[in-house]
Nucleic acid binder design. Structure first.
Lengths: 234, 234
DNA sequence: TGATGTTGACAACCAGCGTTGTCACTTTAC
DNA sequence: GTAAAGTGACAACGCTGGTTGTCAACATCA
């Protein structure tokens, strides 16, 4: 058994809501208060993805989000105390999507680490190409949001990094490198992936997916080989 | 001769100002108009580094910058049309510093690519540790400034990437990889370096320089070895 | 049917900040 | 010495956007 608890990587699994949800308040158009609120919150997050992903955090206004959500400001403040709070929720939502995607790939992974890496990267890159807002929110805008992101972003990045460290430790002969070094190396690989991804987005996905994924995988493979094989020279 | 024109990498070398600078305007406290303006501009950029590096672009205000510079708003708008313009100048200034630092390392580089990479990374990381505002401005805040940065940031990143591609092409047997792939790989390595750097900054330089540089260099070395040696298996 | 919860549209308030203007004071040039 | 340029402190304007409040229309439930 590897050290990594892959399940623990999954961000805040929805607590299987207790069967007896005490529905309070008056029903409206047939739906309970909680459901209406949840529905609005969902709409706001979806609108947040759209607006933040398009205009960025600082370019977005609460009013824009509300228009996109088809709701009014009042309901914005019903679900979120301010714009930053919405961004936090949006970020978590998107990060969860990506992590889940990678975890799925890892779960039904081939035993070969190289193939596993290639598959995970491909899934990641395809997802972003299908929805470039992902990249902007997760890898660019985060940096700009002061408060929540001093916490959230490192957490998410560490999530990916830890997953990678776990994989490396699982597949590599133990004791080859101290874990601290592995963490830095994994950090670097995460950075390489995201930088390539970001540039790919910015250049309008000009180069084919295979080339981009292949180049990124080459970095992973090189590192894996290097750490796997006993040191040769120098 | 390698393809790279290293000199061309250097951003906008100051044009050796013509000997006969037609000093206009009245002298004040013994200095000419142009010199006073240049002095103020310099102070503003220095203040910009301080304020942007501390509060970020969106957290900074023109007034803050002016206070830090010991000047008034009027002189801000004398040198820069708005806050974004100042950020652009600050960014260029810092990017130039770093690029120059790396170019210096490369210039008096050992013939061994591994040692060269290690030296360059060490210089880079030391510079940032000595002035963390560098990292924030160059690797974080850029993303958040819409207009100018859609241009500037890619340019600067491409600068580093192109330098790296040039190095690889110079030291590697030619024709091993298509250049397009090399560019993506170099992009990844730049991303790895900056991600590690950023995380190092955010964790308060807890881990020792040697460890961080070593881990980052490991990625470079692994890639270099992999591309240098003829493909083994797989 | 009537009282009350719910919604939507939108005005209003408030603060911050970019930007421009005012004015007294200092330095320079003649 | 005097007029004009230069400087510094700071007020003032205008806009934008976050946040709260108003009000009429509609839905629900007794």
């Amino acid at each position: 058994m590897p050290h990594v608890n892959i399940a623990a990587m999954s961000p805040t699994p929805p607590p299987s809501n207790p069967p007896e949800t005490p529905r309070t308040g008056r029903r409206f158009r047939g739906v309970a208060l909680e459901d209406r609120q949840a529905e609005r919150r969902k709409k706001l997050i979806e609108a947040g993805i759209e607006v933040f992903g398009h205009s960025g955090f600082h370019g977005a206004t609460v009013r824009q989000v509300c228009v996109a959500a088809g709701l009014t400001e009042r309901y914005f403040y019903e679900s979120f105390s301010n714009r930053e709070a919405l961004f936090g929720a949006v970020y978590d939502h998107q990060a969860e999507r990506l992590q889940q995607l990678i975890l799925d790939t890892v779960a039904r992974a081939p035993a070969d680490l190289h193939q596993l890496v290639a598959a995970a990267l491909r899934g990641l890159y395809e997802a972003v190409r299908n929805d470039p807002r992902l990249a902007r929110i997760l890898f660019m805008e985060v940096f700009t949001v002061q408060n929540a992101m001093g916490e959230r972003m490192p957490k998410a990045m560490e999530g990916f990094t830890a997953l990678l460290v776990g994989l490396l430790q699982r597949f590599l002969p133990p004791g080859h490198r101290p874990e601290a070094d592995l963490t830095w190396v994994a950090t670097g690989l995460v950075g390489a992936s995201t930088q390539i991804l970001t540039r790919w987005v910015l250049t309008g996905f000009r180069d084919p997916l295979d080339q981009v994924v292949g180049s990124c995988a080459l970095l992973f493979d090189a590192l894996i080989d290097r750490v796997t094989q006993p040191v040769a020279a120098s």
